[in-house]
């Protein structure tokens, strides 16, 4: 791997806490190895800020291998940055050029209040799942795993939807702040599988209703969500949710 050093100007949203008014601050960073991940670049910034007695930039992150869905920010207007199907932690600095200015903003949505700097509250997504994103089975007493055969293609389709990591980039990038891709993915996963059938209608109704209540916007089919999704989840899942919801609403 050939790495080189680049210099960057960062304009980062700084906000002390949920009540304070935030603003952008500018930092310049030198000697950033192109082999670093974006979050490692922020680590370096934070080490520098700490050394100078300044408050480091708070940002969410955990697994740093693109699966936990904890990290995320909007880089120069694109959620998770310019690389397709890549979370922020898997975005490497070689995709940027020497002298670039990066504007780093938190995921913004009415439903995602900011805690501090780039750290937002995405618990609205949890509440959508709590509304019905499950099959109501208790532990124990379940039939043998092979009792109901599921066509391989169906399982794969369900898996495509289930791959959602719940990062919230779809909402951050949607011009309307809609959570349709997130909700559609969970409704799709379960409505495709035989195990999800008994609660199919209640699930679609309950999850969509909760989604609306949480303050997300309305979908106008702009496809931005699909374009930034780090797991490449397709808006076919939104189409499926539309069908599920309409069937549930009209045929109860």
């Amino acid at each position: 791997m050939n790495t080189k050093s680049i210099s960057l100007t960062l304009e980062i949203w700084r906000q002390k806490d949920s009540k304070s008014k935030g603003d952008f601050e500018t930092y310049s960073l030198e000697n950033i190895s192109t082999g670093m991940s974006f979050l490692e670049m922020l680590d370096v910034l934070n080490e520098t800020l700490t050394g100078r007695g300044l408050d480091p930039v708070a940002f969410d992150h955990d697994c740093r291998e693109g699966i936990c869905g904890m990290c995320g920010a909007v880089i120069n207007g694109i959620a998770h940055g310019p690389e397709p199907e890549t979370t922020l932690c898997q975005l490497h600095m070689r995709h940027f050029n020497d002298g670039d200015t990066l504007v780093i903003e938190p995921f913004r949505s009415r439903a995602f209040p900011i805690h501090k700097d780039l750290v937002t509250d995405r618990s609205a997504l949890d509440r959508i799942i709590q509304a019905g994103g499950y099959v109501s089975v208790n532990t124990g007493g379940t039939p043998d795993g092979n009792t109901i055969p599921i066509p391989s293609a169906t399982a794969e389709l369900s898996m495509d939807a289930a791959a959602c990591i719940g990062c919230g980039a779809c909402i951050a990038s949607c011009p309307n702040g809609a959570a349709m891709l997130f909700t559609g993915a969970k409704i799709s996963q379960l409505s495709l599988l035989p195990q999800g059938q008994p609660e199919r209608k209640q699930r679609a109704m309950a999850m969509v209703t909760t989604m609306d209540k949480e303050g997300f916007g309305n979908c106008t089919n702009e496809r931005e969500c699909e374009a930034v999704c780090p797991k490449g989840i397709s808006i076919t899942n939104i189409a499926r949710m539309n069908r599920e919801f309409v069937k549930a609403a009209m045929l109860g």
Partner: peptide, 27 residues
């Protein structure tokens, strides 16, 4: 829809950019 959706993001982004190409019509 237009009015409600504007409210769904009370604070906008400083940089607006579309991730998909050919979004002029939908935007």
């Amino acid at each position: 829809l237009f009015l409600q959706n504007r409210k769904a993001r009370s604070q906008g982004y400083r940089i607006h950019k579309r991730a998909i190409k050919n979004s002029q019509a939908s935007a």
